[in-house]
Amino acid sequence: MISFIAKRLAQSVLVMAIVSAVSFSLFNFVGDPVNNMVGQDATREQRLEIRDKLGLDDPILTQYSRFVGNILQADFGLSYRIKRPVDDLIAERLPATLELVFVSAIISLFFGIVLGIYTGIKRNSWGSRIILSTSLAGVSLPTFVIGIALIYVFAVHLRWLPSSGRGGVVELGWWKTSLITLEGWRSIILPAITLSLFQLTLILRLVRAEMLEVMRTDYIKFARARGLSERAINFRHALRNTLVPVITIIGLNIGGLVAFSVVTETVFQWPGTGLMFIQAVNFVDVPIMAAYLVFVALLFVVINLIVDILYFVVDPRIRLGG
């Protein structure tokens, strides 16, 4: 197990090295950093001074290793636009995104798995047919359309929920949360549903397909032949076997939630890292873009590592060897 994790860690380090190289290259390919930082009326001397200060004349490898060294100390430099350290900006915005992703992951996992099992077991019932056909909307409609539709119905028309922003924020140390006030929940519910819908559909369909597959196996037939109750067959035997392949996809999907949150945060003006990224793209704020890239990659790598370890926990065939 230790050698397995060590191998996975080594792979993760490689992935991060490549991603950091890509994000580093952003600095050199997306506009001239000096032009981005100084005003139009800066003198030649001022420009040279900044070039020197940023070390832009050093060999490329030296610059890259300095960049990596800084990242390792969580130093992503100054935002061109706001002139504040990028890591501070991310730290401020991160709780909003993580809470949004957390709530939508819970929604998509809970409803995805429960409805997946239901449609898998009651294959031909009317309930299953309705769930399956509505779930198609979840995959085929773009996130922003769903978001706008939800805003129209619940915020504009019914006026039950706020249309945008993050209300009811309470500070817990440096972490600003909106999950402990009613107002906070009112504002997170629409964006969380919007974000979760696509993943929910995927998980639902995957769980259903796996469930149908598992129900056809010999050990389910044998469990029936031993007179076990339907409940024991469905939940003790079928569900766990269903979840083995589902775990991988769920892991990837949580990464996907972070990535998709860019759109959702924009629609709902949710003050998270995704919105910050979109704004950074508008103003060619390269340090923020580079940091965001590294951050998302890190998230994916960590989630994948957790998924691999979960495999060990769930599947004895991997844990104990053949």
Partner: peptide, 25 residues
């Protein structure tokens, strides 16, 4: 019927590789 299965009529299938749940002891 469920009371009959297992209790009074037992069944053995062809492939022992697949008749047991791989995730349970």
């Amino acid at each position: 019927m469920r009371q009959i299965r297992g209790k009074r009529i037992g069944m053995i299938f062809q492939d022992p590789q697949t008749s047991l749940n791989p995730l349970m002891t």
